[in-house]
């Protein structure tokens, strides 16, 4: 661990990696809270995996893979959202299809791209140590867009994620805000691909918010706590992985996953204790 903090002063790439992790945590804390309370984790998983298709195509034609990822993420978010609104019952089949077909397209294009296949691994599992200053600016930009959108439409997003039918009756354009929410999920996925890769995105999107939900009881506080937890996980994950030269993305996810399990266990025990005490008091 100490080794990491000593190296942090000397190496720019480590500073960039840490900055990238912290920036990604902001988006994942805010949007992840919506994903958790609206229970669209599977949907977010579908969006994140379908992104490989866009990356593969962009890679094949020599374009920016992240640009391709952004286009693919937003396109699949809109497609899933549109299908859910039109034919509600086929939603999960479509998500599964998009999930697999997106990856298949990506693999085909990447395999036909001349050069080394190393890049495939870094998209799947992240390449936080290769984050460049340009990437950092892009991540900061995405964070800013998410923050502004949520700041101005907080009540609308809350109403749509709480009770769509009632929101519709109050004259809120539910379809618009739902699709906007999915687009925010899509850009957040792209933000997080830098850090942990597209396979592990879903864990970083949901775990900090799910842990936060154990302790706070409003959406705003949940976003704040999830952001802080995300920052802690990326910092600890990076530090742990540096000495033994472990893959950073996977280490970050394991830190988050273990914390989630401990938190779940502790809060369940706490709840049982409270219930037992209430039961005893009732019997007196």
């Amino acid at each position: 661990m100490m080794e990491f903090f000593n190296a942090l002063w000397g190496h720019a790439f480590l500073q960039y990696a840490l900055a990238g992790g912290l920036l990604a945590s902001i988006g994942c804390g805010i949007v992840g809270s919506y994903v958790v309370v609206k229970r669209i984790g599977f949907l977010a998983g579908g969006i994140s995996h379908s992104v490989l298709g866009g990356m593969g195509i962009a890679f094949f034609f020599g374009l920016s893979p992240l640009g391709g990822a952004l286009v693919a993420a937003v396109a699949s978010a809109l497609l899933i959202g549109w299908v859910r609104i039109t034919w509600r019952e086929q939603e999960d089949t479509l998500i599964g299809t998009l999930w697999a077909v997106g990856m298949a397209i990506g693999i085909l294009f990447i395999s036909k791209t001349p050069g080394y296949g190393v890049n495939l691994m870094s998209y799947l599992f992240g390449n936080i140590l290769m984050v460049s200053p340009g990437d950092l600016w892009m991540m900061a930009g995405i964070d800013l867009i998410i923050l502004l959108t949520v700041y101005f439409c907080y009540q609308q997003f809350l109403a749509v994620s709480f009770d769509e039918e009632f929101a519709r009756l109050r004259g809120i354009p539910v379809t618009f805000f739902y699709l906007l929410l999915l687009c925010m999920v899509a850009v957040t996925v792209v933000l997080l691909i830098q850090v942990v890769g597209l396979i592990l995105v879903i864990a970083l999107l949901t775990l900090p918010a799910a842990i936060a939900a154990h302790y706070v009881h409003s959406l705003g506080k949940m976003m704040l706590l999830a952001t802080l937890l995300g920052m802690l996980f990326t910092l600890v994950g990076l530090a742990l992985s540096y000495g033994p030269d472990l893959p950073a993305g996977a280490t970050i996810i394991l830190v988050a996953g273990v914390t989630y399990l401990i938190s779940l266990f502790a809060t369940t025990l706490q709840k049982r204790k409270v219930m037992r005490r209430q039961l005893l008091q009732a019997m007196k």
């Binding site: 229970r39 009770d163 769509e164 039918e165 939900a213 009881h217 409003s218 959406l219 949940m222």
Partner: peptide, 11 residues
């Protein structure tokens, strides 16, 4: 039937 989840973090 309320369509929302009772677990939703809201007062």
């Amino acid at each position: 039937y309320p369509l929302f989840s009772r677990e939703f973090p809201i007062t």
